[in-house]
Design a protein around this nucleic acid. Sequence first.
DNA 1: GACAAAGTTGATTATTTTTATAAGCTTTAT
DNA 2: ATAAAGCTTATAAAAATAATCAACTTTGTC
Lengths: 152, 152
Amino acid sequence: MKISTKTRYGVRAMFELAKNYGSYPVSVKTIAQRQEIPLSYLEQILNHLHKAKLVRSVRGPGGGFLLAKRPEHIRIIDITHALEESIKPVFCVDEMAEEDQCKRMDGCVARLLWKKLDEKIKEVLEGTTLKDLCEWAKKFSSTVEHEFIFHI
Amino acid sequence: MKISTKTRYGVRAMFELAKNYGSYPVSVKTIAQRQEIPLSYLEQILNHLHKAKLVRSVRGPGGGFLLAKRPEHIRIIDITHALEESIKPVFCVDEMAEEDQCKRMDGCVARLLWKKLDEKIKEVLEGTTLKDLCEWAKKFSSTVEHEFIFHI
DNA sequence: GACAAAGTTGATTATTTTTATAAGCTTTAT
DNA sequence: ATAAAGCTTATAAAAATAATCAACTTTGTC
């Protein structure tokens, strides 16, 4: 039940672009440095995000990547969809003929469990956008500042 | 974000034992046949569940496995704990010095997200017991029966 | 007491997935 | 023209997962 490194990198890269929303493109190199992600791997990841139309690219010197939509319109689940086959906890959560997954009703009981789990996971990933992350970041940094002042 | 096959097998095996609760031991062979799980792999799995004290074993002819507690006292998360290192979506959800996971607050914003996800996952896995599965199974089979009658 | 039915254990192999690297390409601002 | 950027695909390396195997111990029954 692990989120893949690829997706974790992807979310962080998208967060980096979200912070920069409305400004100049950010190069892969810059993102890689800021987020400490292997450059070539990040290129691949951004390509996937590009194909999923979550980012826009600008080629040539001064180029880089930009969010393709406003941060509040990019949900975490959009990122996971672009980078993982699926976030379903088991392959059989939806679709498929019943016969393919398990021959008895028994199997389906387990499936009900995984379905319940799947719904909750979706709730979180569909309910969180890049804007939320940016707001959390603001809140977090102001907390740190406050504590800092307090301790002096 | 996949539940491992090992855990899926484990849940199904435990369900098989739960259905049989209060009766004779069920042999690994029987469980393997009923649930179509590779025998030797299932042996390993039951060993883990044994070490985690979720099942009791009876050796010798007529032996097999029994639940070590009542179905309502065995939660799905107990099974995942016995069979996977952890169900956390990322390694850094809890504990660890902040320095180990990411150098900037940025990283921690992602962490807040994964933490939120972790909580929801736990809610489901802690909130579901083997008894629930058994009840779902009853409800499900009665539904099927009803539909059957309806179609005649 | 012999035998067979069961669980116990640990080593090993096989497979798949994930992560990462590399190389060569195209586009474009200056 | 050149260099800074993105684009693409192939491949390697590493890790995790799944499965198999072999040899062992316990115990009920005849």
